[in-house]
Amino acid sequence: MLGLPPALADLIHQLTRLPGIGPKAAERLALALIKWEPAEVASLGQALNDSVARVTDCPTCGCLSQDGELCDVCASEGRDASVLCVVEDALDAVAVERGGTYNGRYHILGGALSPMKGVLPEDLRVAELLERIQADGVTEVIVATNASPDGEATALYLKQELVELTAPGGAALRLTRLARGLPSGAQLDYADPATLQSALEHRTEL
């Protein structure tokens, strides 16, 4: 029986370790890659090496950054340091940023609470969050964890941690949670009951 050359088999095996890539997809990717020009392959390898060597977490917020420097948001003078948007992962911050209307800063927790799966409070970047709130004179924390059970529990846990903190000047720190409701462009009759229920609860004045 004709087997695959060992070098190719090794490449396929390496690719299957990536998330979302099964054996079939890995085969297709590997076969495409070996047809690339050597220069293209070298530049892919370079990009890979660079990313691994240079991409770091922003020392302040935990967003994706480069060479240990502050991320663009933290480095920017124009961002409002008194508002913090707390998200589970760096990609969530990227998603909020794509929305284009948020002008505050971010804080990445690095996951969501789930004692069942072994994720405990100590595994989240909560101490850093508390420190930042005091140091930066934060007046509002927007909790933008996922609308999943774990995300909700994380929000409730953060509430426990933050509820007694005060903003500069002694006023209570404003704690908010992202609204839940209909996605833009959605048709009402296609919405699931839980979404509709939540949209009704969080309805706004016209």
């Binding site: 609470l113 405990l120 409070p121 059970p149 529990a153 409730l156 426990q160």
Partner: peptide, 15 residues
């Protein structure tokens, strides 16, 4: 019995 675990307990109690 770290304080933060008690707070996590409180979060799940609320849920």
């Amino acid at each position: 019995r770290p304080v933060d675990l008690l707070k996590a307990l409180e979060a799940y109690t609320e849920q």
